[in-house]
Nucleic acid binder design. Structure first.
Length: 427
RNA sequence: GGAGAGGUGGCCGAGCGGCUGAAGGCAGCUGCCUGCUAAGCAGUUGUGGGGGCAACUCCACCCCGGGUUCGAAUCCCGGCCUCUCCGCCA
């Protein structure tokens, strides 16, 4: 959420942002409501002032044993009037919030202006696409042939868009999770967190997922709880409505969770394999930092994420997303795209974003500066490091051998019981 | 699921219809003092919003939402959360 005062004072910039992002929100109506609201507020406050003074007088008179009947009768009317105005203000507040929650974050000036994914700017590439002297197979075929993933069983159990890992497939998934968590906790200084996978509505609003994306969420209606679409939601909300100590900043968390997405509206896209499923595993990095450091922190967050792919020896590129492509709550966002040989293209595998004070304002996460004084909103950042399922996709396709087996990268072997290669299994 | 207790400022904790934006303590800040550190003394410190160039001033906020009242942190109703005991359970 943007500061209402900021919108009031910079309506043109906000409108420009909307245009650059290809989004809509009725800023003029917002401003009109804001004016009405302040008008009414003024009236209500004058009356309240009157009431407060009169009440104090009445108290005094009663204390002196008098009976100020007239005054009480008069105040009764004033109280009635106040109630009416307050009700009106409440109605305007609701309308105002509805619009304000739909206004996206202002992009940083280093974000390229664009109208679609084609305008994203490639920042760098690491490694090279692997070369094959045979036709590389897609991951779902490899995984099936090796008995690693059973899509048929998954759909029997849960319908389309789910995966059931078995044997070394399940082991590989677990190995990747442990490898990533170990890297971030022991080398990059993140504190591991294992949060609930179901969260309350206000957490979804705080992290900026709602009200915009409700259709894409799984919701448990009886309790109004949501299955998390990413660990970002529970982790960001750890410090909701808190004032952090400056000396404790920055705070780094990393977390493994399953993620649940309905993927409403994307039927027909990427229906095969692990690329787009309703439940997947992800390691997420989340930072709470002082405002003046957040863009540096974004760069180091990005490096922490990149290191996962580098250690796994997977070719990737880094994109600086353009205004049309960065998420609603982000001011700047880098995507990591990993090379998937069978398809001969780059696949989004991580997204690293700076939200500046946007989430913090929604969620009420502040800190007290060293010198004391006013509490200020922290800046929040997060990034995937990595989406595990898509890492499996890239890994299988990149390390496939002519005989259909998969070579296991060095760093994963300790997590695979020393195994160097995945070959066809029985059962 | 049943029976109780409770949610007050950065933290702890008093208050239980008007003199309370809220005692006291801790923490923070500012002076003084002190070889340094620690301690001590004095002062000061909540958040959000409105108006004014300003000093300033007004309004709201004691978990959230309603209600009673001229007046609510204090009384009533609903919700959320926490704790204790019983039951159930991986």
């Amino acid at each position: 959420m943007l500061d209402l005062k900021f919108i009031r004072e910079n309506p043109e910039e906000v409108k420009k942002t909307l245009k650059n992002r290809g989004m809509e929100a009725d800023i003029d109506k917002l401003l009109k409501l804001d004016r009405e609201r302040r008008n009414l507020l003024q009236k209500a406050e004058d009356l309240k002032h009157k009431k407060n003074i009169a009440s104090a007088q009445i108290g005094k008179l009663v204390g002196q044993g008098e009976d100020p009947k007239d005054k009480i009768a008069e105040m009764k009317l004033v109280a009635q009037k106040i109630k009416e105005i307050d009700k009106e203000v409440g109605e305007i507040d609701e309308k105002l919030a509805k619009i304000a929650l739909l206004v996206p974050n202002i992009p940083h000036n280093s974000v390229p202006v664009g109208s679609g994914p084609e305008d994203n700017v490639e920042v760098r590439r690491w490694g090279e696409p692997s070369k094959f002297d045979f036709e590389p197979l897609p991951h779902e075929e490899l995984a099936d042939a090796l008995g690693m993933i059973d899509f048929r069983a998954a759909s029997k159990i849960s319908g389309r868009g789910f995966a059931l890992y078995r044997g070394l497939g399940a082991r590989l998934e677990r190995a990747l999770i442990n490898f990533m968590l170990d890297l971030h906790t022991s080398k990059h200084g993140y504190t591991e967190v294992f949060p609930p996978f179901m969260v309350k509505r206000e957490c979804m609003i705080g992290a900026g997922q709602l009200p915009k994306l409700e259709d894409d969420m799984y919701r448990c209606e009886a309790d109004d709880l949501f299955l998390i679409p990413t660990a970002e939601v529970p982790i960001t909300n750890i410090h909701r409505e808190e004032i952090l100590r400056a000396k404790n900043l920055p705070v780094y968390y990393c977390s493994y969770t399953a993620c649940f997405r309905r993927e409403a509206g994307s039927y027909g896209k990427e229906t095969k394999g692990l690329v787009r499923v309703h439940q997947f595993n992800k390691i997420e990095l989340v930072k709470f930092v002082k405002p003046e450091t957040s863009y540096e922190e974004l760069e180091s967050l990005l490096r922490d994420a990149e290191e996962v792919l580098q250690l796994l020896g997977l070719h990737y590129r880094v994109l600086n997303l353009c205004t049309a492509d960065i998420s609603f709550a982000a001011s700047k966002c880098y995507d990591l795209e990993v090379w998937v040989p069978a398809e001969g293209r780059y696949l989004e595998i991580s997204s690293c974003s700076n939200f500046v004070d946007f989430q913090a304002r929604r969620a009420g996460i502040r800190y007290r500066p060293e010198k004391g004084g006013q509490a200020e909103y922290v800046h929040t950042l997060n990034g995937s490091a990595m989406a595990v399922g898509r890492t499996v996709v890239a890994l299988l396709e990149t390390y496939q051998q002519k005989d259909g087996s998969i070579a296991i990268p060095e760093v994963l072997r300790p997590y695979m019981g020393g195994l160097q290669r995945i070959e066809a299994q029985r059962g």
